[in-house]
């Protein structure tokens, strides 16, 4: 069944169409959630996110546009739902080393910000599992250190040392880009 037919039937309140949708796109949604959340998500978490995604589509079925493919729309909802599930509000004290001070000759704020973000992207892309995942868990998703240790089944000291290594890689990349780290 083509996606536009599924949309049409969803708009007619046909549950079977929703079941078709689940059948067709569950694996896709799971892969998106798993790639964003990695070890931070359990299998149950991922299944619940996928269910939230399909339920959101059902709730919004009246506004769906009868397009050829629902894939981009589903991907967007899957990313948002995963983000909602993963986002944490940090309650613990930040690490001492969380503030980095550099000096450089650049003066254009816009260019500097863009440059710094690219350095971060470069650094992350060079990291492998689990270092990359741990860095993101702490700085992007705001998980507590103890939670990360639990999720990755590693000692707290190992998590701290991996975060330190990640920061060092970032400093290194900044220095390669003409910044001078002021420890």
């Amino acid at each position: 069944m083509e996606d536009y037919i599924i949309i049409k039937r969803l708009k007619q309140n046909k549950e079977k169409a929703l079941e078709y949708l689940i059948e067709r796109y569950s694996s896709y949604v799971v892969s998106i959630a798993a790639r964003i959340g990695g070890r931070l998500l359990s299998i149950q978490d991922v299944e619940e996110i996928a269910s939230d995604v399909f339920y959101a589509i059902w709730k919004n079925r009246g506004n769906l546009i009868e397009t050829g493919s629902l894939k981009p729309y589903i991907a967007q909802i899957a990313r948002n739902m995963t983000k909602t599930r993963l986002c944490h509000k940090r309650e613990e004290e930040p690490l001492d080393e969380d503030m980095l001070v550099f000096s450089s000759e650049g003066v254009d704020e816009l260019i500097i910000h863009k440059e710094q973000l690219q350095f971060l992207r470069d650094t992350i892309s060079l990291l492998n599992y689990p270092d990359k995942d741990i860095l993101l868990s702490y700085y992007f998703w705001n998980y507590k250190l103890t939670e990360i240790a639990e999720r990755f089944d590693l000692p707290l000291s190992t998590i701290k040392s991996k975060l330190y290594r990640g920061r060092s890689e970032l400093v290194k990349r900044f220095e390669e880009g003409g910044y001078y780290y002021e420890a």
Binding site: R35, P94, M99, I112, L117, F140
Partner: peptide, 24 residues
């Protein structure tokens, strides 16, 4: 010129596409 970079603030600027991990 000095730049104080807060790690969390810098990470916040990332997009979801930037942070995709391997499905280990």
């Amino acid at each position: 010129m000095k730049h104080s970079i807060h790690m969390h603030s810098l990470f916040e600027k990332l997009n979801l596409e930037d942070i995709q991990v391997e499905d280990n």
